[in-house]
Design a protein around this nucleic acid. Structure first.
Length: 636
RNA sequence: GCCACCGUAGCUCAAUGGUAGAGCAAUCGCUUCGUAAGCGAUCGGUUGUGGGUUCGAUUCCCACCGGUGGCUCCA
């Protein structure tokens, strides 16, 4: 008999895998305040000083070009730096070239960076006509936040850094003199709009992004890496591999899944159904439309209206297209009286939702307006909460192991005080309580996570799994959310063992994200080389001459009968061209058949990695493919 | 939504103030070949859409649509 060790316990070897070292993101596990984007090691590095100094040099060049420019902030970032300016006119690509050229001249001057601690009075005098700097100085004076808007514990010193003719309010550190920057390892990349202090109600500034390295070779390598990343961008691969398309007349953010994409969706749903069955979920189905009343009750309308498609009116009643499935699932819970014996009730649905994302936020498949969520709602008592919550985490692990997903961070997204009653339901006591429940569960399960305040859902805290797209954008893939707020609004109740009414907690979870984001992510994760079970076409059968056509068709029939996605390639192309075509489509297996194979009833197997196995008996090949498919093996 | 840039054939790209070409793909022939492109022919575009300037606009200007890089926002 099996000891009923919590099923999720085995998953927690994960500890060491949590952090993406390549990105130099800091660990800062369980640190309350630090964003995981901070990295002390980076902040102490020479590269950081080089980039920080390059930002100042760029600001000098811009000030020379526009003496009336107002300067904002210019920090180093991952792989580079930026500086924000308020300028009399918009920058052009030619301006960037001129600024870059001027930067090289300044660098050649070998100007020392000189630090000077000043009083707030003095600082204000120097920056009297620099409103953004004045605002920063006032903040420093109050000791409330640093230049990133992060809260500070103690009142910091106010310091200036001066090189050549340029002085900036800055905490440093910098290189000793501009000559320590290699002028051929610096490059300005782009201009972008950016709101002052990241708030869209503030004026928009012009941000210049640049990159800087120690050597020209490092710069070259970095630019090369950016090029390589573009090649694995799901928007490019998705087109090349015929997975999805967008059509101007259909609308932005509304993907059309091509047959190949349809196959991947089917496979993912099959996987989800298997795993959810094993974890005790039941499948339900709900409409895409509901009356306004439902979303008023759920509380989505005040908090979420901006992201919803506008209502449509029929016979005097307003209907909304659903942006999420939860309210309907709540109604299924409420469809009949519930006993504690019914709990935990786990309702799953690949629900289709529509959200009106702002046009500029759309991003290929990763951010769309129509999506199918790997959704489920778990209704449970408080006592069952930890087990249920961690069972979802265990499910993440099961999936991530199948996909070989290793680079991610679990983000514990909590509320912040400022958002209470605005972004978040106004019940601080329950926020603190449920956050503590999640924290405890994660600690007990020994799962690593990073706590980030201000990222919670409006109804409760959550554990998000953060991943990065090929070109470095961060996305939430999976999510596991606590909801203490909505079940009471729906008046959800169950009879506990003492015969009393109790309100269940609700866990919203989406381990496989949405089809859209998951597949966008997987395309990049695999660089288009899907494992056999997910590959839209698994086998291409290629005759060497027309004489083998009959054998080729027979093989195709045989493979299809075994559930293998095989296709005979009978065109008039030469074998070599057919192989090339299959390679470009990333078909895992090519079966080349000539006279020898027909006679021996074998196949010559070529895998997409180029490896070959000649004279393989047909039965042996079929067995191998089926084994790969059934076990969802990552092996080719 | 905001700022900037971009939009030529299914795809990748070229060209010009005098209405556009190439390669690949597709189609049709020829070729029958042993592990990443055989040869030839044909087809394919009101240069994203609408307006304006001009004798003439695909090229210049404006608006809209769509995309890209950011900001804001998020599964």
């Amino acid at each position: 008999m099996e000891a009923r060790a919590p099923e999720w316990a085995r998953a927690f070897w994960l500890r060491r895998q949590m952090i993406d070292h390549d990105r130099q993101f800091a660990v800062n596990i369980r640190s309350k305040r630090m964003s995981y984007k901070h990295n002390e090691k980076y902040e102490k590095s020479e590269l950081y000083r080089i980039r920080h100094s390059a930002a100042h040099i760029m600001a000098q060049a811009v000030m020379e070009m526009f003496p009336e420019a107002k300067i904002a902030i210019g920090p180093p970032i991952e792989n580079g730096f930026y500086y924000d300016f308020d300028l009399p006119r918009n920058l052009t690509p030619e301006d960037l070239k001129a600024i870059e050229k001027r930067m090289r001249q300044i660098i050649a001057g070998r100007h020392p960076f000189v630090r000077k601690v000043v009083s707030a009075e003095e600082a204000k005098k120097v920056f009297a006509d620099q409103p953004y700097k004045l605002e920063l100085i006032e903040n420093l004076e109050r000791g409330s936040t640093d230049e990133h808007g992060n809260p500070l514990d103690e009142k910091p010193e106010i310091s200036f850094y001066t090189h050549d003719t340029f002085t900036d309010l800055c905490r440093g550190p910098h290189v000793e003199h501009t000559g320590q920057i290699n002028p051929s390892a610096v490059k300005l990349l782009s201009v972008a709009g950016a709101y002052w202090r990241g708030d869209e109600h503030n004026p928009q500034l012009q941000r210049i992004y640049g990159t800087a390295w120690k050597t020209p070779q490092e710069l070259k390598d970095h630019l090369h890496m950016l090029e390589e990343a573009k090649k694995r961008d799901h928007r490019k691969l998705g087109k090349e591999l015929d997975i999805f398309t967008f059509d101007e007349e259909v609308g932005p953010g509304l993907p059309l899944w091509l047959p190949n994409g349809g196959i991947i969706i089917e496979e993912l749903e099959k996987l989800a159904k298997e795993i959810e069955l094993a974890h005790g979920y039941e499948r339900v189905r709900t409409p895409h439309l509901t009356k306004e009343a439902l979303f008023i009750r759920s509380g989505h309308l005040p908090y979420y209206a901006e992201s919803m498609y506008p209502p449509m009116e029929m016979e005097g009643v307003r209907y909304y297209i659903k942006p999420m499935n939860c309210p309907m699932h709540h109604k299924i819970f409420a469809a009949r009286p519930r006993s504690y014996r019914d709990l935990p009730l786990r309702l799953a649905e690949y629900g289709t939702c529509y959200r009106y994302e702002k046009s500029g936020e759309l991003f290929g498949l990763m951010r769309v307006r129509s999506m199918q969520m790997n959704d489920a709602h778990i209704y449970c008592s408080e006592e069952d909460f930890e087990r249920e919550f961690m069972d979802v985490i265990a499910m993440y692990m099961e999936y991530f192991e199948i996909f070989g997903i290793e680079k991610y961070i679990m983000r514990f997204s909590t509320h912040d005080k400022a958002g209470l009653g605005k972004k978040y339901v106004d019940n601080e006591r329950l926020w603190l309580k449920t956050e503590d429940m999640v924290r405890q569960a994660m600690e007990n399960g020994n799962v690593n996570y990073v706590e980030v305040p201000g990222e919670a859902a409006f109804y409760g805290p959550k554990i998000d799994v953060q991943v990065w797209s090929a070109i470095g954008k961060e996305f939430t893939l999976a999510t596991n959310q606590v909801d203490f707020a909505v079940p009471p609004r729906f008046d959800l109740k169950f009879k506990n063992s003492r015969g009393e009414d109790e309100t269940p907690l609700c866990i919203h979870r989406a381990p496989l994200s949405t089809h859209e984001r998951m597949i966008g992510f997987l395309i990049e994760h695999y660089a288009g080389k899907f494992p056999v079970w997910l590959a839209p076409q698994q086998v291409s059968i290629i005759p060497i001459t027309d004489d083998q056509n009959e054998y080729t068709v027979k093989l195709e029939r045989q493979l299809k009968a075994e559930g293998v996605r095989a296709k005979a390639d009978l065109g008039s192309d030469r074998m070599n061209a057919k192989i090339r075509a299959a390679q470009k489509r990333q078909v895992p297996y090519m079966l080349v058949v000539g006279q020898r194979e027909v006679e021996a009833q074998t196949v010559s197997l070529r895998k997409r990695d180029g490896s070959r196995q000649n004279g393989m008996p047909v039965g042996e090949f079929i067995q191998m493919v089926k084994e790969r498919i059934v076990t969802r093996s990552p092996e080719l």
